[in-house]
């Protein structure tokens, strides 16, 4: 028996919206420790890793490890039938091929259940090595989304460079070029509005902007985003999910041949 109950159903909606553009079908892996998902986009350039720890749920029961294959667009559609304040419960039998989503209104005066067929998805898990990154930038998530959107009006790729001076986002296109520099800024009143740069070595990498724009669909999940880069590794863009875990996106760079 699997039973996961979340008082903030709206959180689950945000999680699905953050993934469904990048990944169509994925396995939700549930165990006693929580629920996780790892999937690559169809071109194998980006990878999304989700973790929702069991202690973040209001009720979490998972008698047996389960890997539940779902079409994320179908789940997202289904969750749109839940109110933002609804309590969402997922239920599945150990041997069944369906999952039930139950939505309860906050006053408990409306209860809906939607049953969805599970899919058999062959997916391979990748080992993500622990790494020390040359540069880690923490910044407001809305600012990061704004920068990616603004630069995409000019070009398709972005060069992200971290130096002592700050983090620079540069692009070039047919109509011209653009540079946006963000300096470390820890003097603001609220920590979620600050930009913090931890740099061991300067690093400069090139990425396709359309993937970064997909990642920014996670912006509603967190006020801040952390971007980690090393010259010989995919970048990591991480949004923390309050008290529960994270959604991490890995993106392979473009390199000069």
């Amino acid at each position: 028996m699997l039973e996961l109950r979340l008082l903030q159903g709206g959180l689950l909606k945000k999680v699905l919206e953050a993934m469904r553009e990048l990944v169509t079908d994925a396995n939700f892996d549930c165990s006693r420790s929580g629920c996780s998902l790892q999937a690559m986009d169809s071109s194998h350039v980006a990878l999304v890793a989700l973790l929702l720890r069991s202690d973040g749920f209001d009720h979490f029961r998972c008698d047996r490890n389960r890997s539940m294959g779902m079409n994320l667009n179908h789940v997202a559609k289904l969750l749109r039938c839940a109110g933002n304040d609804d309590i969402v419960t997922l239920k599945a039998d150990d041997d069944g091929d369906t999952v039930t989503f139950m939505f309860e209104s906050p006053k408990q005066d409306k209860i809906a259940d939607f049953e969805m067929k599970l899919m058999d998805i062959q997916s391979e898990h990748l080992g993500i090595p622990e790494a020390e990154y040359q540069a880690i930038v923490k910044m407001p998530s809305q600012e990061f989304a704004r920068i990616c959107r603004d630069l995409s009006t000019i070009g398709d790729t972005v060069v992200i460079s971290v130096t002592k001076e700050g983090v620079k986002f540069s692009t070039k296109g047919d109509i011209g070029s653009a540079n946006i520099v963000c300096r470390q800024n820890t003097t603001v009143d609220k920590p979620e509005e600050s930009t913090v740069i931890e740099m061991k070595d300067p690093v400069s990498l090139t990425f396709a902007l359309r993937y970064l724009i997909s990642f920014t669909k996670a912006t509603p999940l967190s006020n801040t985003v952390t971007v980690s880069m090393s010259s010989d590794l995919p970048m990591v863009v991480e949004y923390k999910i309050a008290d529960m875990g994270y959604i991490r996106y890995y993106l392979a760079p473009k390199i000069d041949e």
């Binding site: 690559m40 194998h44 350039v45 391979e124 080992g127 760079p253």
Partner: peptide, 14 residues
Amino acid sequence: TCIQRRILDYFSRR
């Protein structure tokens, strides 16, 4: 020319 690398160039199948 700029080549797009893939995730599998960095992370291996488990």
